[in-house]
Design a protein around this nucleic acid. Structure first.
Lengths: 245, 245
DNA sequence: TTAGTGTTTTTTGCATACAATATTCAATCT
DNA sequence: AGATTGAATATTGTATGCAAAAAACACTAA
């Protein structure tokens, strides 16, 4: 009998996961410098696996590496969030189509359980719960598509996570009251095996959010022009977003 | 005056690039074990940056890591190639649409220069040249779309490279004679700023290749069933493709 | 004050060292 | 012979050490 899997997990993987969730959960904030010595002590590992984890996160664009200077938690621009939505529109559209084509009865049941007793009231608690379920739902949808590569891409690029980087309503672009019926229609389309409809609904869902986002961005821009210099030009801990490599 | 960029490039990046091109160029073949000591000596660096580079390549799925056993050059399955095409269909479709919307006159000229004097004869030399131009064309198309995230994803996941992993005609699925007119139509649609048409043509282009590929796979399968045990069950250097984690 | 300079302290990037685990291979037993 | 055990060897994963670069600090001169 061969012990195939080797359940050993390398340290850099653990550190990677830990660090990633710290970033996603905002325990490390955008612009923060990542002090290797500090973090590695905190995690009880040496700098070697931490370094490795950081390089992986760099590839995913969660952190920005500046040679000889260090790693910083990355700040996403509005444009990037918008791009993420644009990608999700087509990618999740595709996932929805495929999901509808290959969904099993059991999966359909699990799908229908989403948002079954959703609470669309306005208090923070409910919004948070809805937002969480929203994420779970979209993740499950991707999974249902059975598209390994796609799954991986969305995960590794945090495309979904990035989409929740809006500063209002727990990252939701539109109010649950507005999205709930869309979610329910989409669920039904997939569960009852209607690929064309599923894709159309999924895309519509994102297109609307994107439009809303775009509109907000325009408004914000207009406001900024109206009241230009909002205080002194602040100095950040973080280096200027010199994006490129 | 501040020396902003810091033109220093870390070793792991160099190693990463070097290694990647070795894999893409088949100097390291699928299934090969990557001997860290050997490679690091060959590159004149220690194992630390090599390790880092390998972990990055693992994330991109170019190599497979098995804890405590090592790194192996990954083997792509037909299914993965097919998935790559499916993704390219929608992603490049989107890129083509956006390209058509924002293309400048200069870019249009550069675009029209592609395949200008393409040679569609049957000899290996010509096929190779066409295949190379095909890659360059598609890369340029993505670039034109001006979609940073998308650009990055296609690059990092080697989605385009993977697509050329077919064993015939320098990785081309269909003969230049067949694809050349499609390329020309697509070029014209983008260059003359017709988003809808461009997207439609781009998708059609891939849909056809995908169909062709699918057909070949079916044929192959049929052949395999007709003549089942083709020799003894070979033993490979590589571990059995136990893909997942 | 502010700008500029030299010095100290931190931090990074990498090589190396070492323990833990795999692998190989020879010796032994059926 | 073929299977099984156990030592010898190789390889991996990680910690540590160190030189070079960057940042922080202190001091001087305008």
């Amino acid at each position: 009998m061969r012990k195939l899997g080797t359940r050993h997990e390398n340290l850099d993987r653990k550190v990677y996961r830990e660090l990633k969730s710290m970033i996603v959960d905002r325990k490390l904030k955008p612009g923060d410098k990542i002090l290797q010595e500090k973090i590695s002590q905190e995690f009880g590992v040496s700098r070697t696996p931490l370094m490795c984890a950081l390089k992986k996160l760099e590839q995913e664009k969660l952190v920005q590496a500046i040679p000889r200077r260090g790693f910083y938690v990355r700040r996403f621009t509005k444009e990037e969030v918008l791009e993420a939505f644009e990608l999700r529109e087509i990618l999740e559209g595709l996932a929805a189509r495929r999901a509808a084509m290959i969904v099993t009865a059991v999966q359909a049941d699990r799908l229908r359980a989403f948002f079954r007793d959703a609470d669309v009231s306005d208090n923070g608690q409910s919004i948070k719960r809805y937002s969480d379920e929203d994420r779970r739902f979209h993740n499950f949808l991707i999974e249902l598509g059975g598209f390994d590569l796609l799954n991986d891409i969305l995960e590794n690029y945090n495309i979904i996570a990035v989409s929740y980087r809006i500063d209002v309503m727990e990252g939701l672009v539109r109010h649950p009251r507005e999205t709930l019926p869309e979610h329910r229609l989409l669920i039904e389309a997939i569960a009852s095996g209607k690929p064309d409809l599923a894709e159309k609904l999924a895309r519509q869902h994102f297109a609307r959010s994107r439009q809303q986002l775009l509109q907000e961005m325009e408004q914000e821009k207009a406001r900024q022009i109206g009241r230009p210099a909002a205080g002194k030009p602040r100095t950040f801990k973080a280096p200027q977003q010199e994006q490129g490599q």
